[in-house]
Design a protein around this nucleic acid. Structure first.
Lengths: 247, 247
DNA sequence: CGGGCCCTTGACGTTAGTCAAAGAGCGTGG
DNA sequence: CCACGCTCTTTGACTAACGTCAAGGGCCCG
């Protein structure tokens, strides 16, 4: 009961997916040893292919994980924020990072040294189980993304993205785009131009964008669109010049 | 030294990514308790969304992991064979399978009950670490696939697929397609018709297909094509009638 | 006011999907 | 042995989706 007063950053780290199911007193020593870093927008946290030296937890800000293809094209694999962990590969000695990591906003991150992590794992098997859980759930996220890419159109992926930002499950909703459109495009596997046009295609379904704010007239309708079979794009739905509050 | 004579199936299981780094005597009891099942082509091993009740290891045959979108479209996420493990989610109590699993050829699989797995993990933390390793490497495979989908054309993905089947890294090579083209198409995120046409586009790069056999004239040339920036599809590359051992 | 930067628009080309039909292999039964 | 139906694969013609290139518009900041 002595050191139950911990700073706010530690509090955030304790809530991360990796640590939240573990008893506090097992995690605290690990966190105390960890470095806390301020990284500014645009700076690289690690490179793809580098030996995995640390596990990271985001205390505040935004970080993208991306992949560079041999010809230099970038594909964003994840966009993470507060309480998310990344660099789980560091739990396996000798492993390398399969993606690069870069701050896309000024961020505050916690960096846990791989050696400390390994010794903590050795003393405390539950930690390994927690990491496994984190890895399994990242897995699911990747599979979700694969499904999106393989079976949905760009416009549907945007719809899904907006719905993910939405708190309610019915009625109307206004959401703020959490980062710039270029990054959203890359995350959804589109070019900025295509994203821009795809946003327009959502208008007939009651979505309008202005600046970084999206207004959804009916969440149900958008869900219906997002889940629709792309091949059933017969002209029934779009209804072009009609009925809508166009300016 | 008593029971070092184990049957061939056990031998295969011991070589799987999950178990190969563990001491034999820690794994053997787990394997002995496991069920061995014959599953025939087309039969479902588990459904997406089902509670994860077992870990599986393929002793022989082929299994696909796939995802069904709400509208019923199937997206193949992995195609696995001998020595591959799947259903790692079963290591986490309460977790559900994020994909379905179906045998795509008559197969022989080992099924390890989740409860046995958990108690084995409890007694032997190294096992948990091994599972984490398996999960991290599946992760990498998923990220690879995402990169392929986001930054390469269909023809390039096929090239990459063929190169993965190729043993040599230079010169000529003939490979046998391991399963039918419909499945290859789905795995690469293409329709069968598109796959068929995309194969043709590889002809100028020295690839020809007949039946289920692909002949690659020059692995280097194919690698160059697979890594090329899709946007540089100006007609410079094809270099039609020149310098190369064209028949 | 001017120069970046991000985002949007337009015109156009490429890539992949759709629908429909025809060919190729294969087992069955006559 | 051959016709038959079955499934897998290929083709063709057309459409939709997405990318590319180039030009403009809004916005922030010096």
């Amino acid at each position: 009961m002595s050191a139950h007063i911990v700073d706010l950053n530690t509090e955030v780290a304790l809530k991360s997916a990796v640590f939240r199911d573990l008893p506090r007193d097992q995690v605290l020593p690990l966190i105390r040893d960890a470095k806390q870093r301020e990284v500014e927008r645009g700076s690289t946290i690690f490179y793809q292919g580098e030996t995995a030296h640390s596990l990271f937890i985001i205390l505040d800000g935004w970080v993208k994980l991306y992949r560079l293809s041999p010809c230099g094209v970038e594909a964003v694999v994840s966009v993470l924020s507060r309480e998310d962990a990344f660099g789980e590969a560091s739990a396996m000695p000798g492993e390398v990072y399969s993606t690069g990591a870069e701050a896309v906003a000024d961020s505050h991150i916690m960096q846990i040294d791989a050696q400390s992590l390994w010794s903590a794992i050795k003393e405390n098997p539950q930690l390994c189980h927690a990491l496994l859980g984190a890895s399994v759930s990242r897995n699911r996220a990747l599979v979700d993304q694969l499904e999106q890419l393989k079976s949905h159109t760009g416009a549907q992926r945007i719809a899904d993205f907006l719905l993910g930002l939405c708190k309610t499950e019915h009625g109307a909703c206004t959401v703020v785009l959490p980062y710039d459109k270029g990054l959203i495009a890359s995350w959804l596997g589109l070019k900025p131009e295509t994203l821009s046009r795809a946003f327009k295609r959502l208008q007939p379904y009651g979505v309008s964008i202005s600046k970084n704010r999206a207004t959804i007239k009916s969440v149900e309708r958008l869900i219906r669109f997002a889940e629709e079979d792309p091949s059933s794009s017969r002209k029934d739905a779009p209804l072009k010049s009609s009925s809508f509050t166009q300016s």
